[in-house]
């Protein structure tokens, strides 16, 4: 709540200029955006690796196939975190 109040205060201090107000609000909320963007991939990666190891423990003969799909799935999941990070960089510094 305190953080939201700070954001609102900064936005109010930005004055009547809508562009400046928008830029200030975007920069202030960029960190929250990146934090939220990493939550999902973090949970998903835990599930991917956990299930992959469970599968390999059950059927060691299929470990190669499981690891292949695990690596691709993990890389796709990481893309979400990368998108969040790029959005953070662009909101904050661009």
């Amino acid at each position: 709540m305190e953080a939201l109040a700070t954001i609102a205060r900064i936005a109010a201090e930005a004055g009547a200029d809508p562009a400046a107000e928008k830029a200030t609000a975007a920069a202030a909320t960029a960190g929250y955006a990146y934090g939220l963007a990493t939550l999902g991939p973090g949970i998903a990666l835990g599930m991917i690796f956990g299930k992959a190891i469970e599968s390999m423990a059950r059927q060691p003969e299929s470990a190669g196939m499981v690891r292949t799909t695990m690596f691709l799935g993990a890389a796709f999941t990481e893309a979400l975190a990368l998108i969040g990070f790029v959005a953070f960089i662009l909101l904050k510094f661009a």
């Binding site: 990481e78 990368l82 998108i83 790029v86 960089i89 662009l90 661009a94």
Partner: peptide, 12 residues
């Protein structure tokens, strides 16, 4: 930064 960010996301 825009070129860098877009390349990271699109190439990945």
């Amino acid at each position: 930064l825009i070129a860098l960010g877009m390349t990271v996301v699109v190439s990945h």
